[in-house]
Amino acid sequence: MTSTLLRPSRRPSANAGGRAGARSTAGRSRPGYWFVLPAVALFAIFFLYPLLSSLWQSFFSTTGGESTWVGGAQYLRLFHDPLVAKSLFNVGLILVIQVPLMVCTALGLAYLLNQSWLRFRTGFRAMHFLPAVTTLVAYSLVFRVMLATDGGAVNQLLAMVGMSPVDWLNSEAWSRVALIASITWRWTGYNMVIILAGLQGIPAELYEAARIDGAGRWAIFTKIVIPQLRPVILFSSITSTIGALQLFDENFILTGGGPNNATLTPVLYLYKVGFQQFDFGYASAIAWLLVAIIAVVSVVQFAIMKEKK
């Protein structure tokens, strides 16, 4: 009787409780995996598998419908292909000119449309954003008609002021100008809305404090607006750079990559190699070269625009 009373009672240990809680948590979280599974499956089928398949295909050469393993020969071929160099030069020229021009224009428009004294701001914002909702093919065809050498609207306007017509789409220099102008028209409003959202997120107290300290408009713009918009400008610059490197629709419809490959871009060259010459191995190598370039350029832009701590 005494030994029974003095026997220590058994209590559930902390480890046992922890194991039971872990099992309970795992059981509760298990249905979540079923909800995530469709998204993971779609990602694997439509993104991951094509990505890895293209990488695998870049090590093969297809001749007469038969694929042969060639290792890194396709990548070595890139360095000896003059059209690859020409396409990279063209897209680099677009990056140097068009991306800064578009981002600066979008910044100026956003700053102007954010002023409280401006009337009809909503209408002006919608007007500038409308090109962004226009389909790429539709606006490219419109620009092709407008920039036609004979009878184009732009040359007709030039004739009205006594200027000679310009061969916009058949001249190497002017075709690049036409391409840059069309891209800038299409995407400036899109970047303007992004920058405008960033402007509206700047606290009003910063403007008031700067005015109390005697800062003018230019000082407020350079010392407050630009530093506060650094992440937004970085985002616009990176997305615009990626878009320029992936340029295809505009130059395919406007010039077809000509004249004399003056508007040939890597994606357009990839299309011609893959779907006109049916050399899918080399086309995959061009695609992975483009991926590497986009990654490097994005990292460099991020390093340059990184906010100083």
Rank of each mutant, 00 (worst) to 15 (best):
C104K: 10
I195T: 05
Y49G: 13
R230Q: 15
A197K: 13
G92E: 01
G65E: 03
V297H: 09
L268C: 03
M1G: 14
S29F: 07
V300L: 13
Y190Q: 12
H80D: 15
M102Y: 06
I286F: 11
V154C: 12
N251M: 09
A181K: 09
I183C: 13
R186Q: 14
F79M: 14
K306D: 06
R186C: 11
L234S: 09
E172V: 14
N251R: 07
R176L: 07
T105N: 02
N15M: 15
P131Y: 02
S24W: 09
W185F: 15
Y190P: 00
Y33S: 13
L78N: 02
K223V: 10
L83F: 06
A132M: 07
Y49L: 10
W34D: 05
A295L: 11
R19T: 06
A153D: 08
N155A: 07
L158A: 09
P266A: 07
M163A: 02
S54H: 09
G18Q: 10
P266S: 04
F275C: 00
L289M: 15
Y111P: 00
F46L: 02
A262M: 01
Y282W: 05
A209W: 09
E172I: 12
N15Y: 07
V84P: 00
F47Q: 12
L5I: 15
I226T: 00
R77I: 00
Q98K: 08
L109R: 04
P8V: 00
S61E: 13
F35I: 10
E66G: 11
A262W: 00
F79H: 05
P82N: 04
L229W: 01
I304T: 09
W174S: 05
R211P: 11
A20H: 02
K223F: 03
R11H: 03
F252I: 06
A126M: 14
G214D: 06
F124C: 03
R119P: 04
A110P: 00
Q276G: 03
R10P: 02
I94C: 07
T134A: 14
F280H: 15
M146V: 02
Y190T: 01
P31M: 13
A178Y: 06
A14T: 12
R211S: 04
F89K: 12
M163Q: 05
S29T: 08
A16I: 01
A41E: 12
P231M: 08
V225A: 12
M146L: 11
L118Q: 03
Y75L: 09
W174V: 01
V300H: 02
G27V: 07
A39D: 14
G258L: 02
Q115F: 00
C104S: 08
W288S: 08
I226F: 11
W117T: 05
I242K: 12
S53D: 07
W56Q: 06
N170S: 15
P266M: 05
G17C: 10
